[in-house]
Design a protein around this nucleic acid. Sequence first.
DNA 1: CGTTTACATAGATATAGGTCTATATTGTAG
DNA 2: CTACAATATAGACCTATATCTATGTAAACG
Lengths: 119, 119
Amino acid sequence: MDYQNYVLMLKAMADPNRLKIIDLLSCGSLCACDILEHFDFSQPTLSHHMKVLQNAGIVTARKEGKWQHYTLQAEFTAKFRQGTELLLASNEECVCHGDDCIDQQTSHSRKVVITNEKS
Amino acid sequence: MDYQNYVLMLKAMADPNRLKIIDLLSCGSLCACDILEHFDFSQPTLSHHMKVLQNAGIVTARKEGKWQHYTLQAEFTAKFRQGTELLLASNEECVCHGDDCIDQQTSHSRKVVITNEKS
DNA sequence: CGTTTACATAGATATAGGTCTATATTGTAG
DNA sequence: CTACAATATAGACCTATATCTATGTAAACG
């Protein structure tokens, strides 16, 4: 997995209002008007935020009459946790062991550590 | 926990370059010049990104001679996972059950679900 | 002491993003 | 068909931010 999708999720989540929307939806589906009641911003602003969340694969929309029902995408939770674990793990799955990685033998800081490290 | 610190982490992580820096550091400490080798941007830009990561509590810096050694903050991993679980959990720890939450009995969409739901 | 190396800071610039008002679209009900 | 209600789209505006060049600072070295 490259981090493209994970970054997309992070960007969508990195807004207090959208994070609150996700939190609301983690308790179950809601329509736009119900979500809007929890915020001070305008309806078009909510529409914008919901589109961001959909584009990131975090939320799905299901139209029912006049109402848009928003639901947390089932795969989101698993995918986000997976991306997080992949990022934070220091094992061989770590991306930095790929072709774009540090050459630990020629690393400058490694040389310094050998000659100057005191602790 | 309010989400303030979690949002700060998310904002710092929601950049492909900073995400790659975190990934690099998940394999161990590195000095600025070693990190810089993996990127095309300038040294001041890296300095900026490292400051963002420090302000978010993700990275710590330790000066050793001329070199700045950057390390993933020990608490970051745990705190981020904790914030993620708190966000995605649909149990009573969910923030939306606080005073700023949905009144599920008077929810408009709930009424609609009862009268119009087919599936 | 002067030079080089590693990094930080200052300031400029350009793009991204969050918000608004105004308006369009779509569905429901009379 | 008309009116209203729920949501989406368009476009403007402003702030945040990612980047750069130029310069400052601090440590090591001859």
